[in-house]
Each structure stands twice: as structure tokens, then as C-alpha cells.
């Protein structure tokens, strides 16, 4: 294929689609008049595009448009109603039960998760102490043996490996002190506050 043919054939798609400017179109016309291969390619593309023009699309009937517009009006109207019902005054009656439920949930969550310290206050004598390997209050580590007193006598020691050392980091240096109640451990450290950890 000659270089000019290659160029013309690249442009034939646009040519057959009615594109290109006047000078490009006349160049292709002239070339095709002298080149049988390009003329055949051009004719084939034109036949193809003519056939593709009937791709199965059927113009809808006037009835279709009446229905279409009615449906569109309904959708816009219902959208508008929904929009209006989203304004604050309209939402208050609907949101009130949800707000009450959310409040109850938050209170329950707070009651359930608050640290259980057995009445221990800052500065009060600890009722349970974590003993390190040497038997003196020390930093709690996975090796620590924990003696726990929940206020109703001595508990069996909790397995120390249920405590993640990283969780104990905020409590700083010894002594780390552990209180227990129910399923929760409350740790009172030398740090600024208290913290509870799940077992």
C-alpha cells in the first residue's frame, strides 16, 4: 500500500461520516478517482454506515411522550414533596423517637462501659495490686502475676497474657494497680486517669 493510500484510508472513516474540511474531502475524492483500492474501501465504508443507520431505533409514538411527561411530572412532584419533608420543622416529629432511642442507647453505653473502680478514688489505698516476678508492685507485663481483690475477697488471679503490654503503656512506671469487678479490669496507674480493659 502506498503511503498516500494509508493516509487516505485513515481519513476515510471521517470522510464517509460526512466529516473533514472541504480541501481534505476533495483530496480524497481525487485520490479515490485514481485508486481502485481506496475507492473500493470508501464504497464499503459508505455501504456499512448506510446499513448501520437502521440500528433498530424506533421513534416513540405521541402517546409515549404523553405518558413520559406525565411520569416525569409525578417524579418531580414526589421529589419535591420529599425535599419539603426534609426541612427541619417537618423532620422534628419524625426524628424525635430516633433522638430518644439514641439518647437511651448512649446512656446504656455509658453505664455499661464506664470504668468500674469499686469506689476507689484517687489517693485512696488500693485494694488490689499487681505483683511482678519479684513479688513487689511493678510494671504489669505478660509475666506478671495478678492478685485481684474486688472487695469481696481475693479473686483467682487473671491470666496476665490477656492484657496487652501496649495497653498498659499509658499507665507509666510502677506501681500498676489492678482492680476487678465482674468481667472487667480497672487499672489505676500513676498516670493521669483510670482506664478499663476488657478481659
Amino acid at each position: 500500500m502506498r503511503r498516500e493510500c494509508a493516509r487516505v484510508q485513515e481519513m476515510l472513516v471521517e470522510f464517509a461520516s460526512g466529516g473533514l474540511d472541504a480541501s481534505e474531502r476533495s483530496m480524497i475524492e481525487e485520490h479515490c478517482a485514481a485508486c481502485a483500492a481506496c475507492a473500493e474501501e470508501r464504497a464499503a465504508l459508505e455501504r456499512l454506515l448506510e446499513a448501520v443507520r437502521d440500528d433498530g431505533y424506533r421513534q416513540p409514538s405521541p402517546f409515549h411522550w404523553t405518558r413520559f411527561e406525565a411520569k416525569l411530572r409525578r417524579r418531580l412532584e414526589s421529589g419535591r414533596r420529599r425535599g419539603e419533608s426534609r426541612t427541619w420543622p417537618a423532620l422534628i416529629p419524625r426524628l424525635a423517637p430516633a433522638a430518644v432511642a439514641l439518647f437511651c442507647f448512649a446512656v446504656g453505653l455509658w453505664l455499661g462501659l464506664r470504668p468500674v473502680t469499686g469506689g476507689v478514688e484517687q489517693g485512696a489505698p488500693p485494694r488490689a495490686v499487681a505483683y511482678g516476678p519479684v513479688g513487689v508492685p511493678s510494671v504489669i507485663s505478660p509475666e506478671s502475676k495478678l492478685l485481684v481483690d474486688s472487695g469481696r475477697g481475693a479473686h483467682p488471679a487473671y491470666a496476665a497474657d490477656t492484657l496487652r503490654p501496649s495497653a498498659l503503656a499509658p499507665f507509666g512506671d510502677p506501681p500498676g494497680m489492678v482492680l476487678a469487678a465482674s468481667q472487667r479490669l480497672a487499672i489505676v496507674g500513676s498516670g493521669p486517669g483510670q482506664r478499663s480493659l476488657g478481659r
Binding site: V13, E14, S17, L45, L48
Partner: peptide, 13 residues
Amino acid sequence: YFHAVRKLRKLLG
């Protein structure tokens, strides 16, 4: 567009 027409040409050539 070019590739679309080429593909159609291939399928409906």
C-alpha cells in the same frame, strides 16, 4: 469513533 467504525466494518463487512 475510528475504532468503533473499524469494528463494525469487521463484523458487518
